[in-house]
């Protein structure tokens, strides 16, 4: 882990997102897929904490050696909005690489990677490393609209198949990444699943993988305080090795990549509501009068 004052080499729009490339050789050479950066915000009352971004690319060789790329969703809040407006040659205070990386399967070869929105950024880095290890990669990319599906065209260069899902049907199939999971697993003969998505989606993916006895790794996108283990505020309840108890592990240093079968999802996100099997449609509440 290193701290650097890193110059922005370039920024560019990628759909609804902004991709930022930094010159940070010491961080780039140590970075692995799944790890992230903690970036300081400007001085002022609006921003107290760093913002955290998974690493999209870390180039160790070639013309881009020593550069790092991460992806910002400007709609998240004021901090990411500020970062999305930063320009080339500005300097950022960056700490990284942080967290535990995805691990690569030794024997198994068919890897299914699925992500929602910006979460796909780290999966492209992972896909490259898997392909370099002669694994088969298939991808499912999702988003609300076509703009929020991350790099669907580039995905085709890395993976055997790419399924795109959008909530509004503006690109690919209408639906969420979960809807595409069973078919994709069958088609790709998937042996390992990697996923990055909001926690409720990961919970469903975890349930599917458990049911189908598929080993999986998920990277959680929990809001963090510091990002390097001090503040104990980004915890995830994870079962101990013998599964007799659980402990709240810090997503920043013990994650963000976890084995989803050891996460206590009910403890973390609350129990799922039980829907009565014969639920009647809820009648509309009549208006008191007049048109809405």
């Amino acid at each position: 882990m290193k701290r650097a004052r890193a110059e922005i080499l370039s920024t560019r729009r990628v759909g609804a997102y902004r991709s930022i490339t930094l010159v940070a050789p010491e961080i780039a050479e140590r970075s692995r897929p799944g790890q992230f950066l903690a970036i300081a915000m400007p001085e002022g009352r609006a921003f107290i904490l760093r913002r955290h971004f998974s690493i999209h690319q870390a180039s160790r060789h070639g013309g881009w050696a020593g550069t790092l790329e991460f992806v910002v969703d400007p709609s998240v809040g004021a901090g990411t909005g500020w970062l999305a407006g930063a320009g080339a040659h500005e300097f950022l205070d960056v700490i990284g690489p942080l967290g535990k990386a995805f691990s690569y399967p030794k024997r198994l070869t068919n890897c299914l990677l699925l992500a929602e929105g910006r979460g796909a950024a780290s999966l492209f880095f992972l896909a490259q490393e898997l392909v370099a290890r002669h694994k088969r990669v298939d991808m499912i990319l999702g988003g609300r609209t076509l703009e929020s599906v991350f790099k669907p065209v580039d995905a085709k260069r890395l993976s055997q198949t790419v399924v795109v899902m959008t909530a509004d049907g503006s690109l690919g199939e209408r639906g969420g990444i979960l809807d595409a999971l069973p078919d994709a697993v069958a088609r790709a003969d998937a042996e390992v699943v990697y996923a990055v998505a909001p926690a409720p989606t990961l919970r469903s993916i975890a349930a599917f993988c458990r049911e189908h006895r598929l080993p999986a790794q998920v990277a959680i996108e929990e809001r963090m305080g510091c990002g390097f283990g001090l503040c104990n505020t980004c915890v995830v309840p994870v079962a101990t090795k013998d599964r007799s108890a659980y402990e709240n592990l810090r997503a920043c240093v013990d994650g963000p990549v976890f084995d989803p079968s050891r996460i206590l999802w009910d403890r973390w996100l609350g129990e799922l509501p039980i829907v009565p099997p014969t639920a009647e449609p809820v009648p509309a509440i009549p208006h008191g009068g007049g048109e809405p």
Binding site: R45, A46, F47, I48, L49, E222, R223, G225, C231, N232, T233, C234, V235, V236, P237, Y246, E247, N248, W268
Partner: peptide, 23 residues
């Protein structure tokens, strides 16, 4: 102490509101 339930931290103007439950 296993600590408090999530979420545990939120930014506020010139500050943070937090609760770790003495984990």
């Amino acid at each position: 102490r296993v600590g408090a339930d999530m979420p545990r931290i939120a930014e506020s103007p010139a500050g943070i509101v937090w609760e770790t439950g003495l984990q």
